[in-house]
């Protein structure tokens, strides 16, 4: 499998504070890679920089091409797509218009397959079909996340970056969302997943990175990470405490 995304030496600074420091990571075509770490470690900053929303130093190459200086809009049309932590939906537009806008760059290229993709998104999230005439701002938290995912899928991404897709959602819905994520890989979409729900993320991912204070602290195949004592202590600590007490 070839590398779809290859990041080297990435640094992002806000004013004088360095939020991401010399990060190197890669995503193989067709795989799910997760980045976990505590709040404030720089995960959201990292994704925003990969999307081109923040100025970053270092090198980002995508599908074999250097894209460090490419604008976000162009990254979208090359198949890079970010579902941000805050979803960033168009609250006073209908669900359907939100999906239409997801395919904005494809309308510009007069892509004929857009109609078929609508069907696919509605099939994946029947709730969105029921509510297609409703304003996005009136949706519940889970529906908003579905719409954010649906809007992203309308752009036909090759690499989908998800920032905390489980944020603020009930366990049942989190399960649905993760099922969709796992299913996407089957259709050939590669995924870079940032999660605070470390356990869930490591279960679904092939490979994982632990980000701490802006730097990659640990990396490895998900299964290895899930049993790495340092990861267990820091991020699955509650369980560790639990098992210690139980044993």
């Amino acid at each position: 499998m070839s590398l779809l995304l290859d990041v080297r030496d990435l640094c992002v600074t806000y004013g004088k504070v360095e939020a991401v420091h010399r990060v190197a990571l890669s995503v193989k075509e067709g795989s799910i890679v997760t980045v976990i770490g505590p709040n404030g470690a720089g995960k959201t900053t990292l994704l925003a920089a990969l999307m081109g929303m923040l100025h970053a130093r270092g090198s980002v190459s995508y599908a074999g091409k250097e894209i460090t200086r490419v604008e976000p809009e162009q990254r979208v049309s090359r198949g890079l797509c970010l579902v941000p932590e805050r979803r960033e939906l168009f609250a006073t537009m209908t669900v359907e218009d939100n999906l239409v806008l997801g395919a904005f760059h494809r309308y510009r290229k007069r892509d004929k397959a857009i109609t078929a993709d609508f069907e696919q998104v509605y099939q994946l999230f029947p709730r969105l079909h029921e509510r297609r005439r409703q304003l996005a701002g009136t949706l519940s938290g889970g529906e908003r996340q579905m719409l954010a995912l649906g809007r992203a899928l309308m752009s036909r991404p090759r690499l989908l970056m998800l920032d905390e897709p489980s944020l603020g959602l009930a366990p049942l819905i989190v399960r649905d969302i993760f099922r969709v994520i796992a299913g996407l890989r089957e259709t050939g979409v590669s995924i870079l997943l940032v999660e605070q729900n470390a356990r869930a993320a490591l279960q679904v991912a092939d490979y994982g990175y632990v980000l701490e204070t802006g730097e990659i602290a640990i990396e490895g195949p998900s299964a290895d990470l899930a049993s790495d004592p340092r990861v267990v202590e820091s991020y699955l600590g509650l369980v560790a405490g639990n098992t210690e007490k139980a044993s």
Partner: peptide, 16 residues
């Protein structure tokens, strides 16, 4: 809190 089942479910629940 560390041994409270409801808390564990909230933090780790979801995907099983």
């Amino acid at each position: 809190i560390q041994t409270n089942p409801a808390v564990l479910e909230a933090y780790l629940g979801g995907v099983k």
